[in-house]
Design a protein around this nucleic acid. Sequence first.
DNA 1: CACCTTTGTTCTGTTGACAGTTTTCACTCA
DNA 2: TGAGTGAAAACTGTCAACAGAACAAAGGTG
Lengths: 231, 231
Amino acid sequence: MESDSGHLNDLSVVKSVSLTSALEKELERLILTGELEPGERINEIHLSNRFGTSRGPIREATRSLEAKGLVEVVRNRGVFVRRLSVEDAIEIYDVRAALFGQAGRLLAERMTDELLAELTRLVDEMDVVAERGSFDEYYPLNLAFHNLIVSSCGNRTLMAEYHRFVNKLHLFRARALVQGGGLAVSNREHRAMLEALASGDGDRAQMTHWRHVALAKRRLIAAVDGASRID
Amino acid sequence: MESDSGHLNDLSVVKSVSLTSALEKELERLILTGELEPGERINEIHLSNRFGTSRGPIREATRSLEAKGLVEVVRNRGVFVRRLSVEDAIEIYDVRAALFGQAGRLLAERMTDELLAELTRLVDEMDVVAERGSFDEYYPLNLAFHNLIVSSCGNRTLMAEYHRFVNKLHLFRARALVQGGGLAVSNREHRAMLEALASGDGDRAQMTHWRHVALAKRRLIAAVDGASRID
DNA sequence: CACCTTTGTTCTGTTGACAGTTTTCACTCA
DNA sequence: TGAGTGAAAACTGTCAACAGAACAAAGGTG
């Protein structure tokens, strides 16, 4: 209980942002980091004791999280951290592919030299660590690469939606599977995306970006099939 | 006040669905029908009197609507029905195009003869009323056509997101503009989509569906430019 | 021994009240 | 007349309490 006081302080300090939204952020963090596990029930009383507030703001925060798809509310039973099935995860990949493809198209049409250099640098770095097979180093670079593309596409709505869905994938119980697949293979797709972005061809950029996620989805399906055959 | 009792009854009858979600649905309806206008403030006390509840459930409902992007919450000042700028609407069109394109691709890969017949029937009907220039008849057919495609694509996540964004466009102040553009022109695009769906070619279906929304976006921009030049 | 009933506990759903902030509006003074 | 001022009204933020549903454990019955 004491170990959480660090976050508690943050909550009480920022009175200007309303308790509810601070609680919402904190709960979202707890969910996305896995401190609150998928399927787990969120006890309003426990939380209100833990954060030193009443149940009201907590209820409001959870309603918000429900609309965002992070928790599920069952009447008279409580709110539960949402658990994503394989089918849900696969569906999200389709949505993500569509959004990412659109981001690629938009970015291709407003590309700058600086951005291209930065993206190229990231891909080069990924090549290096991919050769070493170091997933722990590859992962943050990969994340930064995708984020930079989506954040630079010039469409804030699209960006917000994309991040919402990437976040939701954290609720997937077999989350390790989404990170599977060959590093080198994935980075070869990154290069194709880079070239399309550099060419300024929107159609081509959309296609390469879309396909990158579509292939990741296929790798996920393959991994799931493999895992289920073992089970 | 009395004129709303019809909806009030619905609220009180369905005790099994929790007051909050019933209120949320009702508020969403009020917003989307324009009974609560964009920019208008939502008064918690008025609403609680109107619906005969306390403020708690109303606050929870509005938090949910905030997460859905229908209202905006300002601390100590209240919640306001969200107002969409032209830029917001245009951004939404990009997201919608991406999602609709993806729906087209998915549908092309699982097309049935019955569905194709139904879609063809709708397009044929639209041709008839388009020739008459009857927008009031065209609009529901057009809506049904798009909904049928998205609902049949087999991805419920995608469907829900698509509808969420189409709903959000109701908050666009110059909403009439989104419905502009030639009826016949739009229906010619529908035919191209139909052919792609019938061919079972996912790439082609995605492209035609994406382009249909992209062209609608272009028509919107043109309409906005025209309108602003008049102002 | 298994199953149903009952009772007590825990938790959510909802409410009404209080505190603090924003807004309104009448009043004063230049 | 009009800008500034200060009190009052209105409203939101938060809380504590009550009512009722779901759940778990103990006891009774075939």
